[in-house]
């Protein structure tokens, strides 16, 4: 009897709405999904194709092709700013993600496990949720004044702090909910075994939350890598700017440098897509913000 149940569960898991091979709707479903996949992939391939073409092919409006790496050579020329901007983006991702993780793990754990009153927990979560809802552009005037006070306009440090604070709400909420799934008795028994409160957190609870924190880490890293608004308004767009702002510099109303633009686009998008293929589960968990179990 148990085997029968597992078997039926297995097939059900694949088709909850109950499709079968004889079902007439099946090929329509396949058509829709294949269509969606094509619509997703073709624009990406077109960008990669353009990035590998010589300028005269790009402006020709025909269907010719002349493969060359000129555009990549141009953007990674030592005299160009893009190399430095890629490094800025990498530093930004590493620092902002690391700080976000440390702060949100501590706060999420504290709110979930250390017997805060309900009112405190609800207040922190509400403020966090509110920060997610407000358009970042509305806070720019205030942030600009604040960063000016500390002399952090046009600096990587300023961008690291801003990216951290705007990723903290989501990271804290998600980490808190993940810690909620871990039984508090584990912490208590660690304490009885002589571990300090911090020791119980570091050696027992934190490792148990690793899958949740990994999802938060990957999601935060992607958000920081993709961030544009703060980079745009808080740097002058030169050697202090992240790569996303570097792209914007190639798109001017008077002239768009299509080849270089496509090449920077490829450099910015490909690492993320590779990540999506390898770490799909964590990304899905981050995007749906839901329960990551195991």
């Amino acid at each position: 009897m148990p085997e029968v149940q597992t078997a039926s569960r297995g097939t059900e898991a694949r088709q909850r709405t109950g499709a079968s091979k004889q079902d007439g709707g099946h090929w329509i479903a396949r058509l829709i999904v294949i269509g969606a996949a094509i619509i997703t992939i073709v624009p990406l391939i077109w960008m990669i194709f353009i990035s590998l073409q010589k300028p005269r092919v790009i402006i020709s409006m025909g269907w010719g092709a002349e493969f060359a790496v000129d555009n990549f050579a141009e953007i990674f020329d030592p005299r160009a700013v893009f190399g430095g901007q890629v490094i800025n983006s990498i530093l930004l991702v590493i620092s902002a993600t690391a700080i976000t993780l440390v702060i949100s793990a501590l706060a999420g754990y504290s709110l979930s496990q250390l017997q805060w009153s309900n009112r405190v927990v609800v207040t922190v979560l509400s403020v966090s949720a509110l920060l997610q809802v407000i358009p970042p552009m509305t806070l720019v005037p205030g942030l600009y004044a604040t960063l000016t006070n500390y002399g952090l306009v046009n600096s990587l440090t300023g961008l690291i702090l801003l990216n951290t604070v705007f990723n903290l709400p989501f990271a804290t909420i998600m980490t808190k909910f993940y810690f909620d799934t871990i039984p508090g008795e584990l912490r208590e028994s660690a304490a009885i075994d002589g571990a300090s409160e911090f020791g119980a957190f570091r050696t027992v609870m934190l490792p148990l939350a690793a899958p949740g924190i990994a999802a938060v880490a990957i999601f935060t890293a992607i958000q920081v890598w993709n961030e544009f608004l703060f980079g745009l308004v808080f740097t002058t767009g030169g050697s202090q700017a992240p790569i996303t702002v570097g792209i914007a510099a190639l798109i001017q109303p008077q002239e768009i440098k299509f080849g270089a633009m496509a090449a920077v686009g490829v450099v910015t998008a490909v690492p993320i897509i590779l990540l999506a293929i390898v770490a799909n589960r964590q990304i899905v968990a981050g995007l749906t913000g839901g329960a990551v179990k195991g």
């Binding site: 996949a37 792209i247 914007a248 910015t268 998008a269 993320i272 897509i273 990304i283 995007l287």
Partner: peptide, 11 residues
Amino acid sequence: IIWPAIIAPVV
């Protein structure tokens, strides 16, 4: 299908 959702808006 989820690729577009994680690519930078700038890209």
